[in-house]
Amino acid sequence: MNKVTTRQLMETAFWLIFAIGAYILTFNFDEELEIYEFGAAGWPRAMIFAIAFCAIAQLAIEWRRGGEAGGGEEAAAGADGDDAPDAGYRLRATLIIGLPIVYAFLLEPIGFYTVTPVFIAAFVYIGGERNWKRIAAVTVGIYAFLLILFAKILYVGLPAGTMHPFYDFSNWLLVLIR
């Protein structure tokens, strides 16, 4: 029986779109290099062709096998995600992976020292803790540990923020604990 799963087709499509996109980008640096014949785009293009080849080979073999081997394991792995999650779960899962990204983008302007305690408390709350005393204790505990270890003992220069008044708060805090 020769057939492939939709999932397999989507995977192959993803890789081919990725390869085409990357190939288009190589024209941005497709300049000749005076000392190297293959130029800056030679190696990336070779790898892009290898990706396209592997993606097509994978599809061809899947087609020959009849969409069973390999796919079975993935289907099993994916199965536990399919049992109709409720809206509350969806929100929590989104926050779990979304909040750290927001945190990372706030580090440069606002600074590590201001944004970190807020993040810790929020993350513990999303993790399911509702006892505010425990949230406060964990937040203070982790924050104090980080400050003592990295700012006081090891003198690590962490992002102080570039915006006022956060930049000033960071410097005030550093002078205080050092």
Binding site: Y103, F112, I120, V124, G127, E129, V138, I142, L146
Partner: peptide
């Protein structure tokens, strides 16, 4: 869920 933020914060310092 108590260990998790600590791991993320240590990783932040580690990466930076």
């Amino acid at each position: 869920h108590f260990l998790a933020p600590a791991i993320l914060m240590m990783a932040t310092v580690g990466a930076y």
